[in-house]
Design a protein around this nucleic acid. Structure first.
Lengths: 166, 166
DNA sequence: GCTTTACCTAAACTTAGGTTGAGGTTTTAG
DNA sequence: CTAAAACCTCAACCTAAGTTTAGGTAAAGC
């Protein structure tokens, strides 16, 4: 069955795929080297694709829109048994997984936004005591880690910018 | 006054700046080639920085946290008269400018999220008719531009994924 | 005064996500 | 049958934001 499927299906050339998926031919070659898509060769050594490559490319593009790197996309796609065409179920799983990352990114940006917002009010970037301006002096001294914005409460703290010296 | 200021101010070496700003020395060299910061040389050709370089680096880092590219940061910093130290006012202006971009990015990601959300429900990525799955067939045929998600209503449209064929 | 540390420049290297070009083969249209 | 269009591989190139390395100079500590 799987063999006859392979034989019977109409195959697409690289140019046709490129056109229908709206990517460059070179991109398809590139994706293939990265193991994101797969092709078979005809007798003249030209690539032939199963139609489901379009689905995979769509998944890749969707992932990229979400800011997911190709290697992460590859991992996710790679979890499908044997480079199978993603089904409705697969897609639902992938999108749920990616959505979590998307949520994180959005949350992160909102924390940044909040922080900037707080700092516009007090103009504290020019002050020694601002946590945004001078993370070293403040963050280090209060020994709460090197990286700002990793935790929501730090963004909230930034709202209380104060202006001790300078 | 400005001249005496230059003479009298204590100057920082590249190592001191690197340590206080928590960046690598090579990064400071790099920023200098990009025109983001500025240095003077001592008699032995070593870099000496005015203390306000720390402010500029803080601004650069803040911008980067917001996902602003160095060249955009450079443009914004470059609008300050003569590489001046950013003041409270300058910072407020910059952050307002960047905040707008941040808002756009957040809005964009929320649109992506909404779209993915809608598409989880219907599993339409596997269908020919899904606008997310097959932007060419849909977007092109309805001639509403090449780029998805640029407009909010497109994300809303994605919620109505339908499943005509396949 | 000597040794170690810090600093200098210039160029090459890194990762991600591709694009471009050269030189050669296959397929398709007339 | 022939010419054009499409395809092939491999290698080099591109941007961003730096880092690393090599070979050499300056400054600081004892």
């Amino acid at each position: 069955m799987s063999d006859s499927t392979l034989r019977d299906e109409p195959r697409l050339s690289v140019g046709q795929v490129a056109k229908r998926a709206d990517v460059a031919v070179s991109t398809l070659h590139f994706y293939e080297t990265k193991g994101l898509i797969r092709s078979w060769r005809n007798t003249g050594n030209q690539r032939r694709y199963k139609k489901d490559v379009l689905r995979r490319i769509a998944v890749i593009k969707a992932g990229q829109k979400m800011g997911i790197s190709l290697s992460e996309i590859q991992e996710t796609l790679g979890q499908l048994p044997q480079s199978r065409t993603p089904t409705k179920e697969d897609w639902a799983n992938m999108s749920r997984f990616w959505q979590a990352q998307l949520d994180e990114k959005i949350a992160y940006m909102m924390r940044v936004r909040e922080m900037v917002d707080g700092c516009i009010g007090c103009g504290c970037l020019s002050m020694k005591s601002c946590p945004m301006y001078n993370p070293d002096d403040i963050v280090a001294k209060e020994s709460n880690g090197a990286v700002w914005l990793e935790q929501p409460e730090q963004a909230r703290a930034a709202k209380n910018c104060y202006d001790k010296e300078n």
